[in-house]
Amino acid sequence: MRSVAAPPTDDAAVIAASLDDPGRFAQVYEKHAGKLYGYAYRRVGREIAEDVVADAFVAAFRARRGGVRGPGGGLGVRPGMAPTAGRRARPARPQGAGRAPAGRLG
């Protein structure tokens, strides 16, 4: 009797499999989304954290054809992606906001 191979579970193998079956990328999302959300929540707050996570995974999904990279061969779906996504999600702060006017220290 022929055994059926178990689906891959490490990020590199799942990402490679997702090239033929994009739905497989959901495994990467399920594995990392909670940690990334927690990181984003602490950095940008609840209202923006979901957008940060979504942006990070959209970027990772689109980049998966470029090759698997990152520690352990996994795609860089890590907290390191969240600051970039967070900057895109947050409204820009006006230049000089939060600073004392020049010449005044207090």
Score class of each variant (00 low, 15 high):
G98F: 07
A54R: 15
A13G: 13
Q95H: 07
R62N: 14
A97W: 15
Q27M: 06
G45W: 12
A60H: 11
R64E: 01
F61W: 15
G74Y: 09
T84M: 09
R43A: 15
V4Y: 10
P7A: 13
A54C: 10
V58H: 14
R104I: 09
R64C: 01
G67V: 05
A63C: 11
G73H: 09
P101A: 11
A33R: 13
L105A: 10
V53F: 06
E47Y: 04
L75P: 06
P94V: 08
V53G: 03
R46D: 13
S18C: 03
A17F: 02
Q95I: 07
A97V: 02
R78Y: 10
E30K: 08
G23K: 03
V28L: 14
A59T: 15
Y29L: 10
H32P: 00
E30F: 03
M81C: 08
L19S: 04
L36T: 01
P71L: 13
V28G: 02
G74M: 08
G67T: 07
G106M: 04
R2C: 04
G96R: 10
G73M: 08
Y37C: 01
A63M: 11
R88L: 09
I48P: 00
G74I: 08
A102D: 12
A5S: 10
Y39I: 04
K35E: 14
R62Q: 15
M1W: 07
P94L: 13
V52I: 05
A40K: 03
R42D: 10
